[in-house]
């Protein structure tokens, strides 16, 4: 039965993505999916035997982490496209994705310790993924500081370079931190044999959460891009009005 649900969802995804081009439809689907996700987390997904109720943080924690990585990947791609095509649109995507990425990164860094404290007894263990998240937070906060708000063609270029460098550095940081510290518990999702440590109910809940977070990410991206584009349009208009007044 669950297999049919999965296949149906996958097939429905493509027309949904197309329809989500419409802002209202996107917001509605996002709200519905988020509500379904929350209901699944608290009413459907079984409580994990060893970790207890705190394990439920995992759904939002890991979804935030995956969304964050996707956001920073988007920053890298958009930065490369900006340097190549010199188009403002790509620069807007890079800036918006970076800001939202930092928001999700902060959420991961907050929920991580809240999950670790009852389970491992400490607020912070320097395990590779959390440490990588911390370093990425530092890099992309520096990215945002490099930007601030005024549009300056050169500043956008420097930020694009940092966006590319930051993401290229990710595997190197990950590798170096892993060699440095080996306290990380074996990941729950995929274990060596390829079987998941989650029951199928938990996996379904997690996937729905992930989809909800990705929809949320794209919605926030839209809104943020609209802010940047409006600001740019305002500047152009002000410039035109000034010219006309002077002329």
């Amino acid at each position: 039965m669950q297999k049919w649900w999965t296949i149906m969802l996958f097939v429905m995804a493509f027309p949904c993505i197309y329809l989500c081009m419409n802002r209202v439809f996107h917001a509605t689907v996002m709200c519905i999916t988020m509500n379904v996700a929350i209901m699944l987390i608290f009413l459907y997904a079984p409580t994990e035997k060893m970790q207890g109720i705190v394990q439920k943080i995992f759904y939002f924690h890991v979804s935030s982490a995956i969304t964050m990585f996707f956001a920073f990947f988007l920053v890298c791609v958009a930065s490369i496209m900006y340097l190549w095509k010199n188009s403002d649109w790509w620069d807007t995507i890079a800036l918006s994705a970076a800001e939202i990425g930092v928001v999700f990164c902060t959420l991961v860094l907050i929920t991580g310790p809240l999950w670790a404290r009852p389970i491992w007894g400490t607020w912070w263990s320097w395990d590779p993924t959390l440490t990588l998240t911390l370093v990425l937070w530092l890099i992309y906060v520096a990215y945002l500081m490099l930007r601030i708000e005024t549009y300056d063609p050169k500043r956008a270029r420097f930020a694009a370079i940092l966006g590319i460098i930051g993401f290229v550095d990710v595997p190197l940081i990950r590798w170096s931190v892993e060699k440095w510290r080996t306290l990380h518990p074996k990941p729950v999702l995929i274990q060596e044999g390829g079987t998941t440590g989650l029951t199928s109910a938990m996996l379904l809940t997690f996937l729905v959460c992930l989809v909800a977070f990705l929809l949320l990410f794209f919605y926030l991206l839209r809104e943020r891009m609209s802010v940047v584009q409006s600001r740019h349009a305002l500047e152009v208009l002000r410039h035109d009005i000034d010219e006309l007044c002077v002329g």
Partner: peptide, 25 residues
Amino acid sequence: MKNFWYLFAAYSIIWTALCVYMIRL
């Protein structure tokens, strides 16, 4: 319901942060 407050804190923070950000935007 051991460790309930950690769960509550985590979800409250996530929701507050996301809502504040969305409203601001």
